[in-house]
Write a protein that binds this DNA or RNA. Sequence first.
DNA 1: CGGCATCCGACCGGATACTG
DNA 2: CAGTATCCGGTCGGATGCCG
Lengths: 118, 118
Amino acid sequence: MASSARRGPYICGIDAAMDVVSGKWKSLILWELDSHGTRRFGELKRSLPGVSEKMLIQHLREMEEDGLIHRKVFREVPPRVEYSLTEHGKTLNEALRPLGAWGKERIERLAREGTLAT
Amino acid sequence: MASSARRGPYICGIDAAMDVVSGKWKSLILWELDSHGTRRFGELKRSLPGVSEKMLIQHLREMEEDGLIHRKVFREVPPRVEYSLTEHGKTLNEALRPLGAWGKERIERLAREGTLAT
DNA sequence: CGGCATCCGACCGGATACTG
DNA sequence: CAGTATCCGGTCGGATGCCG
């Protein structure tokens, strides 16, 4: 399986949480689903400029397996699949909020100091 | 330079924060330094079972470059180097706390449900 | 003691092509 | 539309050996 999550023995809480959100786009997916409530595969793809379908689906599957998101398939033609956050996903997003705020401040500080790499 | 951090243009705060803490041991280093205030290289190494010297020093250097930790060299024989958190490192650790709590709950839930991979 | 240099395997993630 | 399959390169990270 192309699973990157360890789901293994964890040293501490941070370790376990990082395991679940590590992956280039996962936090962005969380963010996106939290903002819009529900998103289709294509919408998600368009929301994350630069993501490949492979990585997107891989991340989505892992996040589903981790109980963070829900995948609802509509047996229609053309096919439709909607992704949304589970309760765990929502609480994770809440837990991520302070980190996001910290990062935001960091971005602003870097911009002010002109330390941003060219 | 063997730098894994992008320090590049960020999409959002989470993105910027994840950039700084991604790396197998960084959050643990943060945790360790926060608990003990100051740690020598060898102590840190012993605190993180399984870490290689290469990764430890690499992470420490990146975290120093990112302004998260302070490196103090004592010109003695034998040499001594002490690492400690900067103010930014401390605030990052604070921002990480909810995530750690979330992860801790996740570990407990996994244990209860016996879902932990063998 | 506290590093640095080098080699190397694993896997993370991108590009492309194909399918129901 | 929403994937799957395959190939492939770059990087992450471990092992080993050497140095001030």
